[in-house]
Each structure stands twice: as C-alpha cells, then as structure tokens.
Amino acid sequence: MTASSPRYSRITGTGSCLPPRRVTNEEFAADLAQRGIETSDQWIVERTGIRARHFADPAVASSDLAVAAARQALESAGRTPAEIDLIIVATSTPDMVFPSTACIVQQKLGVHGCAAFDVQAVCSGFVYALSVADAMIKAGTASRALVIGAEVFSRILDFNDRTTCVLFGDGAGAVVLEASDTPGILASELHADGRHVGILCTPGTVSGGQVLGDPLLKMDGQAVFKLAVSVLEDVARSVLEKAGRTEADIDWLIPHQANIRIMQGTAKKLKLPLERLVVTVDEHGNTSAASIPLALDHAVRTGRIQRGDTLMLEGVGGGFTWGAVLLDY
C-alpha cells in the first residue's frame, strides 16, 4: 500500500466460540413444564426455526467467549495478538459495568497499548462495530482490528416467560479486519430510532449497590417482527445502491439470526434463493451481537463462503437499531 493509494479494509480471518452446553427444545420444554409453563419443540420451531441453543457455565463471561473466538480469527488470518492495533467488542452482556469487555479481552490476549472499546447496539452490534472499524482503518487510525460480537444472554433471560427465554443463546464470533489496497467492505449504513426503546429492552440498572428496575429481557415480539421486516429490505437496498451493486451481486445473505421467518422474508424481498441464505438460528438461537459473526465463521469453515464472494450482513436490535454492510470476502 503506497501513501497515495486509496485505503480500504478487508476481512482476513474469522473465528467463533460456542459454549459446550447445548440445550435442545425438548430439554427446555421439560424444564419449563416443571414450573407449570407449557411449550414444545414444535411450538418453538414453527414460530422461530430454533431447535437448540448453547448456554455458558456460570463462571464463563462474555470476555472468555470473545477471547476464544478472537484466537481462532487471529489464527485464520495468520496474525498474532501483538499485531492488532484496535479491539472493538459488540456486546449487551458485558463482564462488568466498566471497564469495557474489550479492555478485558485485550488483557486476556496479553497485549496492551492499542485502542479497545465496546459498542452497544444489541443485535445490530456487530454491524455497528464492523462499520466503526472500517471507518477507522480507512481514516488511517488503525491497520489491523479485532472486531468481536460476544454475548451471554442466558444471564438476562426470564425463564418464566416462554415467549422470550426459548429464543436466545450464548456465543461469540470474531473477525480480523485489515487495511488493504483492494476494497473489501464496499458500503455500510447504520440507523436507530429511539421511539421504539420499549419494544426490546432490559430495563434495569445498578445504583447504590442494588439493581433498580427489572434486569431481565422484555420484548414485544409482534412489534419487533413488524419493524425488522420493514427496515431490513430498505437498508439492504440502500447499501447496494451506495456500492453500485444489485441484488444479483449478492452471493450470500448473512442476517442477524433471530427468526427464520424474518430471515427468509428478507431473502425473498431481495430476490435471493433461500440456498443463498446463511442459517444458524436453528442450532444457535438468537445470540444477539454474536449471531452474524458466528454465522459468517460457520459458513467459511464449512466451505460455503469462498474468497471473492460478495456478502450482505444485516442486523436489527433493541434501540431500535438496524444496519447493513456489503463486502467482498
């Protein structure tokens, strides 16, 4: 890369981490039945497409999952932690109030000195974090970034609410994003609408050593569904227009893994065959900010995504936030 050449960013490695404990719908239904709450594998699959999810052990934090995913991504990219000059972690379930989970990841990787911070945009978090890292690389303030989505949503679920507790899982995904002479990330777009704060939130906080409000996840499923369907198509088309591409140029659609009906609906609106939709929600559940990088790494490691493929990443989350990134892998 010469001083006068344009500066771009490309993904050079991917990684992921799922906790060993896999919880099937049947196990979930049996556990809820003991509390007098009725559900079934059929009920969950028909509404969401989810068949299983992974839960972390109590001693495992978001940073632990993030570090495991980061090490995989670094190995994939042929890089060491010492070569990284930016760490961004997207999470809604940080290890502590502060410092950031990114700083804890930095410490666990055994490096110091580079910028490290968290991004909080819930299920859109990885798209937000990737866009920020891309902008910093293009501006010349970073050259090699670790961008991670990591969540332990099992810690904030209300296991007496079958409409939400069956949806979410734990995990982490990561990418190494590096400066490049050739375009990788082609275009991105981020949005938020705070008028919809209440439809998906965990409305608790810490004050005076006690939890104020409700520390468990709350969701208006129908409202989230309607908003997600309406914004995902629009933001995808906007990003394609920015990049000078069309739907026909998309090789793989990697949406936030929340609900199979939303995902399939978006693919159909973009005129993409469902075979081009990367789906991991059936085995991972909704892992919030971790879902897109988890799905990306899975598709890369199983050989579906190849170098040169064009990918559309898009997410929606509490806030209400949404965004998309178009990239050449």
Rank of each mutant, 00 (worst) to 15 (best):
H112N: 07
G113H: 11
A116K: 13
A116T: 07
F117C: 04
F117I: 02
C123H: 01
S124Q: 12
S124E: 04
F126Q: 03
F126V: 02
L130D: 02
A135Q: 14
M136S: 07
G140R: 00
T141D: 10
T141V: 12
A142V: 01
L146E: 01
L146V: 04
G149N: 05
G149P: 01
A150P: 01
R155T: 13
I156T: 15
N160D: 13
D161K: 07
T163G: 15
T163M: 10
T164D: 11
C165V: 08
V166A: 15
L167G: 03
L167I: 04
F168G: 02
G169Y: 06
G169F: 05
G171L: 06
G171R: 04
A172K: 02
A172M: 08
G173Q: 06
G173A: 09
G173V: 06
A174Q: 03
A174G: 05
E178I: 05
E178R: 04
A179G: 14
D181T: 15
P183K: 15
G184M: 10
L186D: 01
S188N: 09
S188V: 04
E189K: 09
E189Q: 07
A192T: 13
R195I: 07
H196P: 04
V197M: 11
I199M: 13
C201N: 14
T205W: 12
T205P: 00
T205G: 14
T205A: 15
V206A: 14
S207G: 10
G208S: 10
G209F: 00
V211M: 13
V211G: 13
G213A: 11
D214P: 10
D214S: 14
L216F: 04
M219H: 05
G221R: 01
Q222P: 00
A223Y: 05
V224L: 06
V224D: 11
F225T: 12
K226D: 03
A228S: 12
V229T: 15
S230Q: 07
V231P: 07
D234N: 12
D234P: 06
V235L: 11
V239Q: 05
V239G: 08
